[in-house]
Computed example of a mutant assay.
Amino acid sequence: MPERLRKFIGMVVLVAFVIIYALVVVTIPIQNVPGALMWLAYATAGLLWVLPAGLIIAWMQKPRPPRT
Rank of each mutant, 00 (worst) to 15 (best):
M1F: 15
P2Q: 10
P2N: 14
R4Y: 11
R4S: 14
L5G: 04
L5M: 13
R6V: 10
R6A: 13
K7G: 05
F8P: 07
F8K: 12
I9E: 01
M11A: 06
V12T: 01
V13F: 01
F17P: 00
V18S: 03
I20A: 09
Y21W: 03
A22L: 09
L23H: 13
L23T: 08
L23Q: 13
V24K: 02
V25D: 11
V25G: 07
V26H: 13
I28K: 04
I28P: 04
P29D: 14
P29V: 05
I30T: 05
I30A: 05
I30K: 03
I30E: 05
Q31P: 07
N32P: 15
P34L: 05
G35A: 12
G35V: 07
A36K: 09
A36T: 11
L37T: 15
M38R: 04
W39L: 10
L40H: 08
L40W: 10
L40R: 08
L40D: 11
A43K: 14
T44H: 10
L47F: 11
L47G: 12
L47A: 06
L48C: 13
W49H: 07
V50Y: 06
L51A: 06
L51R: 01
G54F: 04
L55W: 11
L55H: 14
L55E: 14
I56L: 00
I57G: 01
A58Y: 12
A58E: 13
W59T: 05
Q61I: 11
K62H: 10
P63C: 02
R64Q: 14
R64A: 11
P65V: 06
P66Q: 12
P66C: 04
P66N: 07
R67A: 09
R67W: 06
